[in-house]
């Protein structure tokens, strides 16, 4: 068998795609971050409301541009971190997300990576003007680097492949 088979999504992925939890912008978020890009076909924004006193996540939400796995991964991740400490949250891995979803297909691992990437970015952003806690490494972690690599890879590819001269699009071929 080759890799070109219908994606063996778990029922959980389909369920969360249909009814995602914690979607949309969080109005009283005190940190947010985004990972991925339009060119990747994958983009996740994470919003967190963090209790400043005890560093607990009071609320979390997401927005996602991407496939069913991307939406499901973001959704389940927000559920996994609500009410949890920042330290616990920082250490969530993409594999845990995949497991919670009943296993992501191999070609969709990057959706988990991207979700974790966005989450860690949001946590780093939160601590930007604050004293770093000792559990937060100064250097980027391998998972964060991984997310960055995914983003860079596609930037390079898309720049290479896209025509330098963009044909104009006849307006009658385009809706409002």
């Amino acid at each position: 068998m080759s890799d070109r088979i219908p994606l063996p999504y778990s029922p959980k992925v389909l369920e969360l795609f249909r009814n995602p939890k914690n979607m949309g912008r969080l109005k009283d978020a005190n940190t947010q971050a985004m990972a991925g890009s339009l060119a990747c076909g994958d983009m996740i924004s994470i919003y967190l409301k963090i209790d400043d006193a005890n560093h607990l996540i009071e609320d979390a939400s997401f927005e996602s541009y991407g496939c069913a796995a991307n939406i499901a991964a973001s959704s389940i991740m927000t559920e996994m971190i609500k009410g949890k400490s920042l330290e616990y949250t920082w250490n969530i891995s993409w594999k845990q997300i995949s497991n919670e979803l009943g296993g992501l297909p191999v070609v969709k691992y990057h959706c988990g990576v991207l979700a974790v990437g966005a989450l860690r970015r949001a946590i780093r952003t939160y601590f930007k003007e604050k004293k770093l806690p000792n559990w937060l490494p100064k250097e980027l972690t391998p998972d964060e680097k991984h997310a960055l690599e995914e983003e860079k890879l596609i930037e390079v590819l898309s720049k290479k492949m896209e025509k330098t001269k963009k044909p104009k699009i006849d307006l009658s071929y385009r809706s409002k």
Binding site: C40, G41, D42, V107, H110, L153, M161
Partner: peptide, 16 residues
Amino acid sequence: CTSRVLEPSHVLIAIG
């Protein structure tokens, strides 16, 4: 989505 990256159709890329 064939590998790590989502591969756009070569036809659509060719038309710009």
